[in-house]
């Protein structure tokens, strides 16, 4: 594992999976104790569940990216850029969902939710780059 991109993706990806699974556990504890700030707030429940799910899934995506990036994107510069985009997106999307459920109104997320589309765009661009690279490699 000499590729620095792969190393950083694996570190980030597994850390994200661990972190957002821990968030999932915390949410279950909230259910266990019927924590009113969570179970009685429909929108917050939805947003934090989305943070947990997106964080874990994007973390796994980053791991997969790390394992396959060298084959899809042989150019180190392109690989670094795509990796940065994906990791930024994988962080911002769940963070936006989570913070959107902090200090939110009953029917609307807090303004931090605006981080989500930004993160989603970055993650999309990173994955798009890998997808295009995969086609090129196949060519």
């Amino acid at each position: 594992m000499n590729d620095p991109v792969q190393r950083s993706c694996l570190r980030f990806g597994w850390t994200a999976v661990a972190g957002f699974l821990a968030l999932g556990l915390a949410l279950e504890v909230c259910h266990l104790f019927k924590a009113p700030f969570y179970v009685d707030a429909t929108l917050r429940r939805e947003l934090w569940t989305l943070a947990h799910a997106h964080g874990a899934l994007l973390g796994l995506t980053t791991v997969v990216f790390g394992l396959t990036a060298e084959r899809c994107l042989p150019d180190l510069g392109a690989r670094r850029t795509a990796s940065w985009l994906l990791r930024a997106g994988a962080l911002l999307v769940p963070l936006g969902f989570f913070l959107g459920g902090v200090g939110n109104a009953e029917g609307d997320p807090s303004p931090s939710i605006l981080v989500v589309p930004l993160g989603a765009a970055l993650a999309f661009l990173g994955i798009l780059a890998a997808a295009i690279g995969a086609f090129r490699k196949a060519d």
């Binding site: 009685d40 707030a41 429909t42 929108l43 009953e106 029917g107 609307d108």
Partner: peptide, 9 residues
């Protein structure tokens, strides 16, 4: 309901 789910519930 869509904007006030908790009050609705």
């Amino acid at each position: 309901r869509s904007c006030h789910p908790d009050h609705h519930a």
